[in-house]
Amino acid sequence: MDDALVIGGTRFIGRHLVTELLANGYDVTIFNRGNHDDPFAADDRVERVQGDRTDDDALAAAADEVDPDAVFDCVAYYPDDVRAATRIFADCEAYVYISSGAAYGREDIPKREGETPLAPCTRNQATDDEGDTYGNRKAEGDRAVFEAAEEGVDAMSLRPPIVYGPHDYTERLDFWIDRVNRFDRVVVPGDGTNIWHRVYVEDVASALRIVAERGDPGEAYNTGDRRLVTLEEMVELIADQLDTDVEIVHAGPRELEAGDIELEDYPLYRDYPHVMSTAKLADLGWESTPLEEAMGRAVEDHLESDRVGRENGPEREAEERVLGILETL
């Protein structure tokens, strides 16, 4: 495969994917609406086609203009988006849909492709934009991939959990980097042992390429950091990369009540462990970046950016009330 079309391509995962494809000799075209700054504006190796991916005619026109070997769908948020794309790009050598670990419908540890059931998706869930039904829509997108593959389309799916790293506009990890960078005492909700599988963004990009090149049509592949860390260990990892020391203060529901805070108010907190097996992807030759290296790049990017992520979690003033209560215990 030589020619790649990236639907999306300028913000986070897509941005890193374009870089990954260029580094591996692909000719790359970006298809999007052009609503965000283009980090590749000065790069003559990247072609651009402007259009709305929800406009089937525009997507079909892009397919005719580019005639790509591989298509990477970074912004398919609804099942009908996937159905349209797999129809329009049916003759491509690979179509890879970015699904999500949220597509799983049962809390297995770990969640495995083909074993752990996917979430159901009603007709209403398939078209709404509520955060609570994000996983349902992604699961239905997976099923659309499987159906297309049964009809002969070389369609595959990649399921990442929480993605972190440079240029992360969600600022979930930035909340924690900012806390560790500014304060000597950091409140960690619960006992600090909760686990939410995460994956470094450059590893998602390499996984997408590898699945396109080596994956099997009709298959889904989990991706995630090979070594998982608890929330407390993640905070310690951030501190190591900042070359600073922090005192981690655990706070349960009763202690957090002093600041009118709930456990779920903290980004990257999840009560029940979310762990995904990545053995299937590893069998294709994929490897994840060592955690220290990945977090080092994420911290460096945070320090060079204007992102703070503070709106993603409790205000520090509220945490100070919690810390004051804990000091009296």
Rank of each mutant, 00 (worst) to 15 (best):
P290L: 12
P273L: 07
W196K: 11
T116A: 01
T170L: 12
L281M: 14
Y200H: 14
I7P: 12
N124T: 09
E327I: 00
D2N: 09
L291S: 06
P314L: 02
A298F: 07
P110I: 02
A61M: 07
E304W: 14
A251E: 12
V275Q: 15
V204S: 10
G259D: 13
R227M: 12
F31T: 00
N124S: 09
E219L: 09
A298R: 10
L263G: 03
V82S: 04
F31H: 10
G165E: 04
R198S: 00
A239W: 13
A41R: 14
A205W: 08
A103V: 04
R11N: 12
G131V: 04
D142P: 06
V235G: 06
D67N: 02
G152F: 03
V211S: 01
I7N: 05
G313P: 15
Y269P: 13
P217L: 04
E292C: 01
E300Y: 01
A94C: 11
G114T: 02
D44S: 13
E233N: 11
A220Y: 10
L326G: 00
P253L: 02
I13H: 03
S277Y: 08
S157W: 12
C74F: 13
G34E: 06
L228D: 06
Y78D: 08
V201D: 08
G131I: 02
E147G: 00
E213H: 07
D306S: 09
A144T: 03
N181T: 03
P68I: 01
P68G: 05
R182T: 05
I261F: 05
H274I: 02
S99T: 00
Y266N: 08
G14R: 07
N312K: 15
P161R: 11
A298V: 03
D2Q: 11
A102E: 12
R198N: 05
D245F: 05
R15G: 00
E317S: 08
P290C: 09
H16G: 03
D168Y: 05
G218V: 02
D81N: 14
H274P: 00
R83C: 00
I98Q: 11
G313K: 15
H36D: 12
A282T: 09
G9W: 07
T223Y: 02
G192I: 04
D216F: 01
G8P: 15
